[in-house]
């Protein structure tokens, strides 16, 4: 009969992993493979910018106005070669992009992490405890979700500016930005985790633990949390792309990172000034980098959702 204990096929854990659905769908999707390579390269470039960048664009000593407005793939009047050209102050566009991606990624990742911790925590509580806690948390999340994240972030940013004394604003700007974007994005995590938690809470393995008298906190942490990780990963990935875009938008609007630490959004804002006068490269290369970054992360998120949710395929 089918029910007799079958001797397990002797395969290594690595082989089991390679045969799993996720790996299978990864190998079957060339787009995903390309996206993951692009994302990896961009992240690598950003993380190791200080080592990889040909110039340090923020060291005034090495800046030379003679290098200004050098077109891509040519040498400046100052005699130096720039792959992607220079901006009005003679900063190497390639290097500013590398440093800029670093800022964009840092803000995006930290904000997503912040949103994730807050959203997952509140979502678990709302879904597991239920009752009034659930009602309050989810009502707040609902109202907030109906406002675009960018508006929330702008508001928080404006409020923070009003509260923080002017002389500390520059140093705090990045953290304000991270908190603003994080606070704007937590609700998505909370809503998803709450839904998943309510499903898991009804399942009998949780009842089995409750019968034993396992502490509710331990049940949440050891039983429920591991089972809601899938959707959190998906939202986290898509949320990272979203946070990067939001940061770029805020910086583009001129309320984001300080000008001394330009992110991709700041670079685009600067570049736009020269679009009409023909220095297109100052705008185009940061813009391409931003889109590639957001698109590759989004593609990974999209694939992850399909891979973790085979019935949607």
């Amino acid at each position: 009969m089918t029910d007799l204990p079958q001797s397990p096929p002797k395969t290594s854990r690595w082989k089991t992993f390679l045969r799993s659905d996720i790996v299978w769908s990864y190998r079957r999707s060339p787009v995903t493979v390309v996206a993951s390579i692009v994302a990896f390269l961009l992240i690598f470039m950003a993380v190791f910018a200080p080592l990889l960048a040909p110039y340090n664009p923020f060291n005034p000593a090495t800046l030379n106005l003679m290098d200004g407005f050098t077109p891509p793939n040519s040498s400046s009047m100052g005699g130096r070669y720039f792959t992607l050209g220079t901006d009005s102050q003679g900063r190497d566009v390639l290097s500013t992009i590398m440093y800029g991606s670093r800022v964009s990624l840092f803000v995006g990742a930290m904000a997503t992490l912040f949103a994730m911790v807050m959203g997952v925590g509140l979502g678990l509580v709302a879904g597991y405890v239920g009752g009034l806690w659930d009602a309050v948390i989810m009502r707040v999340a609902d109202v907030q979700l109906s406002f675009p994240a960018i508006l929330i972030a702008l508001l928080i940013f404006g409020v923070a500016r009003g509260i923080i004394p002017p002389n500390q604003q520059e140093g705090a700007a990045i953290w304000v930005l991270i908190i603003a974007i994080g606070l704007a994005n937590w609700a998505q995590f909370a809503r998803t985790v709450r839904g998943a938690t309510m499903v898991e809470r009804q399942k009998d393995y949780v009842a089995a633990a409750r019968i034993l008298g396992v502490n509710p906190f331990i049940i949440l942490l050891r039983h429920v949390l591991p089972n809601v990780v899938g959707p959190v990963l998906v939202i986290g990935t898509i949320g990272l792309a979203l946070a990067i875009i939001e940061e770029a938008t805020l910086s583009y609007l001129g309320v984001g990172v300080p000008p001394t630490q330009p992110s991709l959004g700041t670079l685009i804002r600067i570049g736009q000034q020269f679009l009409f006068s023909g220095e297109w490269w100052i705008l185009l290369f940061p813009a391409i980098t931003l889109v590639l970054l957001a698109l590759s992360v989004n593609l990974l998120g999209d694939w992850l959702r399909d891979a973790l949710n085979p019935k949607l395929r």
């Binding site: 399942k203 009998d204 393995y205 009842a207 089995a208 633990a209 019968i211 396992v214 591991p226 089972n227």
Partner: peptide, 24 residues
């Protein structure tokens, strides 16, 4: 007191190994 549930697909935590489930 212990309990055995109806749905054997929902009564075992899918993220736990059999050893940990039985040892809980």
């Amino acid at each position: 007191v212990q309990m055995i549930f109806q749905d054997p697909y929902a009564s075992l935590n899918p993220r736990w190994r059999v050893k940990d489930i039985i040892a809980e």
